[in-house]
Simulated assay, not measured.
Amino acid sequence: MSFDVCVKAPAKVNIGLKVLKKRADGFHNIESIFQTLDFSDELHVRRIPQKECIVRCTQMQLPLENTLTKTYSAFCSETNIDFGIEVLLDKFLPAGGGLGGGSSDGASLLKGLSDLAEIQLTDSLADAVAEKVGSDVFFFLHSGFFQKGRGCALVSGRGEVVKAIEPRTDLSFLLIFPGIHSSTKEAYSLVDQAYESGLYESKYKVSYPDFSELKRLYYGFAGAWKFTNSFTPVLIDKYPLIGAALKDILECGADWADMSGSGATVFGVFKSDAAAKEACLKCQKKWKCVVAH
């Protein structure tokens, strides 16, 4: 079987993630730096005559409605294309890992669809589709990834405000997968409970740099980073394995480490590829892990 388009869907990590209190509409504003990594899913897409989206994935069972089917439906409603697609998804990013896998798959399918349909993927078209699929999709579409092969951005609002910045290329990342599936809904619920009970002040003693300072800190020495993830303390309380993974990665020499997104992937930042690979050799005796850049 031949495919018309092959596109990568990269993982992202959150370098710091401040989750603010729930808004009146039920969403949360965030403040974060998102960065893509060269650890990715791959999508192979071909046109089919019947107007439907068929998704095949051998690595995991996807729900009937997923970010790929949502992306196809949203693209159809915005463009009135007259063809369907079959997608073979090679899934390497863990579900519930905080790496934005589903959103990245959706953004990359949108890029593939625009190529297949020979329709320019304008900002307005990208945003119209992202609005219907998920907040993190905005980042992958506007981070610079599809233009440069690497993306990084300051992200705010509920994830739809994306200001691309130049990604650092001098860092290596070690990702540890504790084997825990952390649903976004559960994670936000735990954050809401922590705000209501005052745990961030009384127990976790969490502090965050000002949003205006994130870019400056990002370009500084990673060992001096003061970035914090609001999800980390509440999820460690519920899943101590996350805390154990974080402790191990720091003991293996990471300059800085935290959980990504709403978890449960833990990652450490290293100043060299050699240091990250050496830490990986130590950590893989206990954890499933991978080095990325």
Rank of each mutant, 00 (worst) to 15 (best):
P49D: 11
S32C: 08
F177Q: 08
C289T: 06
G112I: 07
L116M: 13
E278N: 14
V191K: 14
S114D: 06
V266W: 06
P94L: 07
F173N: 05
D192Y: 10
K286S: 09
L171W: 11
T58Q: 15
V19H: 08
D248F: 02
K51M: 04
D273K: 15
V161M: 11
F211V: 05
D4V: 00
E213R: 12
I180L: 12
Q50M: 10
V7H: 07
A254K: 12
A275V: 02
G220P: 04
R158Y: 00
S262E: 02
L17D: 01
S143M: 09
M60W: 07
K238I: 03
G261T: 06
F83R: 14
S2A: 13
D210R: 13
F34Q: 08
A224V: 00
T184V: 03
R23D: 02
P10R: 15
C252G: 05
P94K: 14
G16Q: 11
L171F: 04
F173C: 04
A153N: 12
K247P: 00
G261D: 05
Y72F: 11
E186L: 13
H142K: 14
T232K: 14
K285T: 02
R168S: 05
R46C: 04
L174Q: 05
F39W: 06
D105K: 12
L246P: 03
F221W: 03
E201C: 10
E278K: 15
K163W: 00
G263W: 05
K282Q: 13
V133M: 05
W287V: 00
F145S: 08
A128Q: 12
C289W: 08
E65W: 01
S272M: 08
T122K: 13
K203E: 09
D82Q: 14
K51G: 01
G151C: 09
K285Q: 11
Q193V: 06
E118Q: 15
R46S: 04
L241H: 10
S104A: 12
L62V: 04
G112N: 11
K271Q: 12
A279S: 14
D237I: 05
P240N: 14
R216W: 04
E42K: 14
F83N: 09
S143Q: 10
A224C: 03
S156G: 06
S73L: 12
K51Y: 00
R150G: 00
L246V: 01
L125V: 02
L43R: 14
A130P: 03
S77I: 04
L43M: 11
F27W: 14
L250V: 06
L93N: 13
